[in-house]
Design a binder for these strands. Sequence first.
DNA 1: TCTGGGGTCCTAGGACCC
DNA 2: TCTGGGGTCCTAGGACCC
Length: 415
Amino acid sequence: MNRIIFHIDCNNAFLSWEAAYRLSKGNALDLRNIPSVIGGNREKRKGIVLASSYPAKKYGIKTGMSLMEACKLYPSLDINPPDYDRYVQCSDELMELLLKYTPLVERYSIDECFADVTGCFCEKASDFANFLRKEIHTKLGFTVNIGVSNCKLLAKTASGFSKPDKTHELYSSELKEKYFPLPIHNLFMLGFRTCVKLYNMGYYKIGDVANEDPKLLRRHFKLFGLLIWSNANGVDSSPVRPYEDKPKGIGNGMTLPADANTPADAYPFLMSLCEMSAQRLRAAGMRASVISVGMRTNEFTFQSHQRKISTPTQSTKEIYTISRLLYNELWQDIPVRTISVRLSGLSSDGIVQLDMYGNEEIRQQRLDKCIDSMRIKYGDECLSRARTIGSGADSVAVTTHKQYPKIKPNIMNGA
DNA sequence: TCTGGGGTCCTAGGACCC
DNA sequence: TCTGGGGTCCTAGGACCC
């Protein structure tokens, strides 16, 4: 039986969700109808556009652009800060609605999911998709695009065709007419760097790559070349996975309010990041055996160092101690703009063998758990490490929003 | 372009062991 | 002690996605 896969993509997710929420609270103004954006905080140097309304797009304002640049294009732009917790809730509501129709729903990111709807409807697949779109609009207040196909790769491509509020079909049998003529930057997993390389090699359309000898692509791009070729040929038999994988890594990063000119300038922020990551690690019931620290200088170069430890940990103190060593290794006397901490090599928080410092480990565990529970009860700001007070890092978000782990970098695995 | 923050996987090179 | 080769682990960095 041929599968029918939907890819549901929320149109301008953050902005639509914000708009829908405000309307539901009695606000008469619909952010979607004016030049508006969801964007960060200019004072904290987090000024980029996370989502823009269609009227804003008309002025050339798009995601990823700095707020300063956006304001040059439209000076009276309406700028609204993001509220991640609310967006997670919207994402959950969409999942719940879809689960009423099929148990096979896979969350791909906060604003995208796949649904295997094979055998779930009697009418045409596109009619069912149209019905679902209306249902989502009526019940949840925002619009989506739905891509319809017999595999995830093509369904995802189709949902990106024209927006908003549209259904598009793209089946394996239609590659020649609908897929091969597309410019190669539409190919899933092709980013800026690889696109430039392919242009220079004379490939401009997906069909150009699809008709190439895969051996040649492999020579140039190694295994990634084969992935490009197989994506270009629309090959994908991966199933819709109705569960969320355990994360492979947990991390937090931040742009500092001002460049750190010495390691000591950065330590309070590093502590804050370790605390955030460790708290998420404990909440997930996991321990980490690899700790990585990354830094981006004010020249925008990026470097990272990591350390593997023999006994997986979830202790804020231990993670911070190692992070500081790594930070000092990385420090090259160049002002630092962004720092990040990442925990990987994750394992479940089962019974761990305690080393000779076992008692100290238990003491730290109790302390961490106590801090976690107080923060859950009274909010993140109720406690600050002495180290972070007055540095500005104590006011830096200890707020975390749930991240959905990507299943695999390509959606054609399992083939 | 003057560029956030959360993820995933791949690759190359070095260290180490047998 | 010298030598080769294969396998595995660790580390750093690159590319991609949303």
